[in-house]
């Protein structure tokens, strides 16, 4: 059970965290084009299986339909949305404006990130903004919501009510500092955190111990990032092309040891086992499933890991019409 103030968090994700139910979130990758149908279809696949779904914000600097627009479409499709906002493309004016906009649109969760550098995206010639960093953006969001003020001190006419989320990478150096970096985000207002992919469960457990020692898990829902590696190409991509992902050697060995037509299943099995192991680590509040292009497989992964829709239904009980919003 996580102590979340009443000022924020009106959605299913906040309810699951407050009630101490093992939460599940997932990621919807928006399309590179103006087709709402893609988002709607992915939302329909996830509805009823996750507490909320993130719509990514131009992941890795590759342009996609905007997160805010994707959230509106996903919510109409029946799944609670998490809007992602990175510091990569917006200065403090645009960030605050989008945060207020998300509040007005009734999006119950925001996920605030520093963001990847545009250098490796499809517009490496773009100006990297980084006017604020992830900690400062989280700070700014809490200020907007709880004090009803902009960074300049000017008052808002109405306060947004979203739950504030952040990210952390437990595996990137300096490792000794990673739990404390999350501590900074929690100190300034982060109420849930979604981590980078966990392939190294032992390393994650070490980080969780530091998180517990700092008492962060009592104030912030820790959602472990997981995802299936369904091909050797995906393994290669995640290991080499996605900044900050750590894939221990034994994961690669395990996938290479099975016949090629069985790799997809082996990757899904590994993901299921990872979730089961993560559930045993004290202080973990849930999982965040990232399966770009394989959203259809997420319900099965969660169900096999024992985080199926039945868990969700009990989490939803007593929340009335909030879910349908």
């Amino acid at each position: 059970m996580i102590d979340l103030p009443e000022s924020g968090g009106t959605g299913a994700l906040a309810a699951a965290l407050r009630a101490g139910h093992f939460a599940a979130t997932a990621e919807i990758g928006p399309p590179r084009g103006a087709n709402a149908e893609v988002v709607r279809r992915k939302a329909a696949l996830l509805a009823g299986h996750v507490d909320a779904a993130n719509i990514t914000d131009n992941p890795s600097g590759f342009i996609r339909l905007s997160s805010l627009a994707g959230c509106v479409i996903a919510q109409a499709g029946g799944v609670e949305a998490v809007v992602q906002l990175t510091c990569r493309d917006r200065n403090r004016i645009a960030l605050q404006s989008d945060l207020i906009g998300a509040g007005a649109l009734g999006i119950p969760n925001v996920l605030l990130l520093t963001g990847d550098h545009p250098r490796f995206g499809d517009h490496p010639d773009a100006k990297p903004v980084f006017d604020l960093d992830g900690v400062q953006l989280t700070w700014t969001a809490r200020e907007l919501r709880d004090e009803g003020r902009l960074l300049s001190g000017r008052e808002l006419t109405a306060r947004p009510r979203w739950l504030i989320g952040a990210v952390e990478n437990p595996f990137a150096p300096p490792r000794e500092f990673r739990a404390r970096r999350l501590g900074k985000k929690v100190a300034v207002g982060a109420q849930f955190v979604q981590t980078q992919f966990v392939f190294d469960v032992a390393g994650f457990a070490d980080w969780m111990k530091q998180v517990r020692d700092l008492g962060l898990h009592e104030r912030c829902g820790i959602l472990a990032g997981v995802g299936p590696l369904r091909s050797l190409r995906a393994l290669q991509h995640v290991s080499n092309d996605v900044p900050g992902v750590y894939v221990p050697d034994d994961v690669g060995r395990r996938l290479r040891a099975v016949p090629e037509d069985r790799i997809a299943d082996a990757g899904v099995d590994l993901c299921v086992e990872t979730i089961q192991q993560i559930r045993e680590i004290p202080g973990v509040a849930g999982v965040h499933v990232m399966a770009f292009g394989y959203e259809r497989g997420i319900p099965e992964i969660l169900e096999r890991a024992g985080v199926g829709p039945r868990t969700r239904v009990s989490a939803v009980a007593g929340r009335g019409d909030e879910h349908a919003r």
Partner: peptide, 13 residues
């Protein structure tokens, strides 16, 4: 990224 509050998540192993 001119980050003033600590490293980003993209630091290599």
């Amino acid at each position: 990224k001119q980050l003033r509050n600590g490293p980003c998540g993209g630091v290599s192993q």
